[in-house]
Design a binder for these strands. Structure first.
Lengths: 194, 194
DNA sequence: GCTACCTATGCAATATTTTGCATAGTATCT
DNA sequence: AGATACTATGCAAAATATTGCATAGGTAGC
């Protein structure tokens, strides 16, 4: 349901192709709602049938045609109505397998899990770097933004603040894991005079 | 896929009924992986077919029978193996419609969206309170915990830290929205001498 | 007595998401 | 020359998740 409206939201400013949208959903909007290109093409088809979006073809030399989608007035109206519609407030559940795996922490998997945490830290740092760049480039002076852009800015702030919090948590978690490992009996490696 | 293992994880300590699991997924484990009772019963059936869990019936006076599930040795083995298996690291996307709605911030919906933020703050404060209570009750001295419980503690820490971050963000967002509203021309309410 | 909610289980339909496949030309690296 | 990656679109199947319904007795408040 929401993906439909996320796509329309992305079309508020510019017309975009399915491919463009797929890339947009790898970035800013995708931080809040991920979608694969297959999903996007299917939704675009659905939205076209509803006449909430329409497209024009753009021929390119050598390459496949781009179908550039844009909001219709009916789509714009539907989007505006959706924003004001009831809100199933599921408080964010950070759906990451790693948490479940942490519930299974053991001597056998502690190194593996610590490694996965490090990988997440790196990925998050990269993303955080991207967001900070966007912030500096487009939201350096939030006070002067038009109202709608202030909303986007709030979402961006949430991403940045979540990212920083996540990095701090990973670091703390790694420290605790390192401490726990030291206390472990060096059983497997010990030269046991059998 | 992961729900299967989340359920097995919950069965590590105690045997539980589907109903018990459903309630557990409203609390601690559910912060990381939500599941409805229908899903849980289906997975339990599936897990039984794989012989990864087994159950015994417990008759109760007046009430329906409870089917108490427990891990089998094969289930335990499968769980241990899963923890070490490849990890599709999708960095958490806070899948909340509200972010998309914020991208559509306008004079028409600013009050509504601010109200939804307040509702989220209240819900998060309640949850945070629950987590802090769990922390004080069961994880007051994290250093002395056995290894596996330290993993659970890390997940709990993540929940607490995310919750606090979220509250701080909501407050900042509400302030920015309040500031933005003040700057708005008082168009709709003004006594316009037509 | 009626209403609402809790314990306790589960089926079925629908909606959403993921994964695999398919096509086709261009560009870049080795 | 061949491998890999990028632009660009889309179908189909499988896995997951949500929503509605169904049963059945117990407890608590009005």
């Amino acid at each position: 349901m929401a993906l439909r409206f996320a796509i329309m939201t992305a079309l508020l400013d510019d017309e975009m192709s399915g491919y463009d949208l797929a890339r947009a959903f790898d970035k800013s909007l995708g931080f809040f709602w991920h979608a694969s290109h297959q999903q996007i093409y299917r939704e675009l088809k659905n939205l076209s049938e509803r006449s909430w979006v329409a497209h024009r073809a753009e021929r390119q030399a050598g390459r496949p045609e781009r179908h550039l989608y844009h909001l219709t007035p009916a789509g714009r109206k539907a989007l505006d109505a959706w924003v004001l519609q009831g809100d199933r407030m599921r408080l964010q559940e950070s759906k990451d397998e790693l948490y479940i795996k942490l519930y299974n922490l053991s001597e056998q998997n502690i190194d593996y899990l610590a490694g996965r945490l490090v990988a997440r830290r790196e990925a998050m740092m990269e993303r955080l770097y991207l967001y900070e760049r966007i912030r500096r480039r487009h939201y350096a002076d939030p006070h002067s933004l038009p109202l709608r852009r202030k909303g986007v800015y709030l979402a961006l702030l949430s991403g940045i603040s979540q990212g920083r919090q996540y990095l701090a948590w990973v670091d703390e978690a790694l420290e605790i894991l390192a401490g726990a490992k030291e206390e472990l009996p060096a059983s497997a490696v010990s030269i046991d005079p059998a």
